[in-house]
Write a protein that binds this DNA or RNA. Structure first.
Lengths: 348, 348
DNA sequence: TCCCTCTGTGTAAACGATTACATATTCGCG
DNA sequence: CGCGAATATGTAATCGTTTACACAGAGGGA
């Protein structure tokens, strides 16, 4: 592999001069510059990043820690991150870490010296496991908030989004509105529940515990919860699921029981995954700008990095948006496919 | 940041001894080992990977180059890669690179010295741009095959999968079977077309050029192609789309035109994306084991790395599987949701 | 003329790890 | 008792960069 020494020898200058030219530091005569650039290009010289990071103690890389995640969300958030990272000359080191303390710690250890900062997403994490990390590098927490003020965090406007959706259901005349809750100990789940209750109270409706069913963010969970709701003496007229997967499970249950949607029972979800608009009927949901979430996270992190982790900590939220489809409202507000360039092929 | 020197000083030994203990190289007395481990743990020492890679010229990191991709495929393939990478103590450096020469080259340059090898996916790539890279590191090409024999490659059994699906359509009695082709200059697209033609010939049917419509892997493309097919004097009785997105677009077109599926027109896709089973009617497709694709790619790369890129080059294919649903066959072969733990929440 | 300030360049010391080689101690065995 | 082998540890070179410092020559002002 060709090193800076090889280039220097070839150009009859010292390594210092080569380094100065390639980094634009210090004064070098125009002619020497031209010569060195030409030679470096011809020899296909690329600096060894390890050596560089050794002396500069910068890696130009940011670490990304994600829980065991499937689907659309994952790819979108990475896309957003990669965009802003690349724009700023940074690389992405990605690692899937089981969301327990041990997993996170192991992953963070592995990243020491490899990254300038970390974006960690771990929705049901005790942030403690992060706080006693062997590092002074900046960290941005995604989809959960740390207890102290030590760490930047970025979350979805869960509560607000849930509130808006439930308010929408209320505006359609619903009074008995059920919720299928998200996974226990999950930040997003807790916030969405909070928004649900808030909307009810704002409408003068006292939240009814029997209408708050447990769920786990899976389709099967939504299916079972919906069956339980149907079995109630005093059925609700609307179901708000804490995410789309559960809403889809609920739709199945209702369909199988011959319940008419939205006439007999309205259904709404959260996330607005691509599947939502393909449901029958198309599913109303709370849209989350996932790509932007990733982008903002990286921006926050870069800010922390440039300030050497000595900056005002922030807590930001990305806004959500209500998307009303036929599962809550009889008139079709949106017509399905084709939408040019919206859904792409997985293999292309 | 605590270095190996700090640990050595604290333990009253030389850096060499510390290094030996932590790497398990050379003989060190049990007591010293215990002491050093204890101190290293207490001080939260983690070796600086840059320094290490400088001397060992190994990074324990593999680079991943992906085209501008949305959706399920992306996340699944990364999942497969990360699994096997982690199992072998490797990290993943991920970069999205526009699939032109310049994009790839830039990305590969950025990775020099950071990675021990690269998995590159670039379906419509002239492999030339890869071959004259400034590197001697191993490369595995995903979803396309290099012209020469210089590079390992891993592809989907496109041709075989397409052939099987078309054979299935033939077995249902179809004779006039149309195809909506994939993007031009795309490897997968070309192979799927080849499989389609092969199946027809095997059934004694001469491929009819008017039944081979252009597509681009997008929903809109499938929609338009289907309309064109409907407008033919002598309509086909079945449509095979080179991917699911186009098949879904075609379904929309048919529905809007009041064509009954599968009675009047059978429809099949390729990829088996999660959406497929939610279509109305559920879409028959060729299942691609995406996660395994990523896993195999990393395995191949690790093999090349361990052999220092001096190994037999290979060309492998991951097998596909036919999934028949109602869009081609009247009797429901599969019942939709809920499938426990199959489709998860994007935010969980 | 002298000195000071630029400009352009080289020398060498870091950075944090690994490892070949040297050294010191212990032990076993003839 | 003495010698070689085995064990435990230290010393120092090395990897490829960046950068503080030194230095040489040129130009300008007093």
């Amino acid at each position: 592999m060709v090193t800076i020494k090889d280039v220097a020898r070839e150009a009859n200058v010292s390594v210092a001069t080569v380094s100065r030219v390639l980094n634009g530091s210090g004064p070098v005569s125009d002619e020497t510059q031209r010569l060195i650039r030409e030679i470096a290009g011809r020899m296909r010289y690329v600096p060894h990043s390890g050596a560089r990071s050794l002396i500069t103690s910068k890696t130009q890389t940011i670490g990304v820690l994600l829980p065991d995640l499937y689907g659309e969300f994952f790819s979108e958030v990475i896309r957003g991150m990669d965009d802003t990272a690349q724009k700023n000359g940074f690389h992405l080191l990605i690692s899937r870490a089981y969301a327990d303390r041990h997993g996170i710690e192991t992953a963070m250890r592995g990243m020491r010296g490899r990254v300038d900062g970390v974006v960690a997403m771990s929705p049901d994490l005790d942030e403690n496991s992060l706080l006693n990390l062997p590092s002074t590098i900046p960290v941005v927490l995604l989809c959960s908030v740390p207890r102290g003020n030590e760490i930047d965090s970025l979350t979805i406007q869960n509560s607000r989004g849930a509130r808006d959706m439930v308010a929408h259901l209320v505006s359609l005349g619903h009074r008995r509105i059920a919720i299928i809750k998200g996974a226990a100990r999950n930040y997003d789940a807790a916030e969405r529940l909070r928004g649900y209750r808030k909307a009810l109270r704002e409408a003068g409706i006292e939240p009814d515990p029997t209408l708050e069913r447990n769920g786990d963010f899976t389709e099967a969970g939504g299916y079972l919860a919906a069956l339980a709701l149907l079995a109630l003496k005093d059925r609700p007229t609307a179901i708000f699921a804490a995410n789309d997967s559960m809403a889809i499970g609920a739709l199945s249950a209702l369909r199988e029981s011959g319940v008419e949607i939205p006439g007999e029972m309205a259904v709404a979800g959260f996330d607005d995954i691509p599947l939502a608009r393909y449901m029958d009927p198309p599913l109303s949901s709370v849209h989350v700008p996932i790509c932007e979430l990733g982008a903002r996270a990286v921006e926050m992190l870069l800010h922390g990095i440039s300030r050497k982790n000595d900056h005002q900590r922030r807590r930001e939220r990305v806004p959500t948006e209500l998307v009303i489809r036929r599962s809550t409202s009889a008139q079709p507000a949106e017509r399905p496919p084709p939408t040019i360039g919206k859904v792409r092929s997985p293999v292309s």
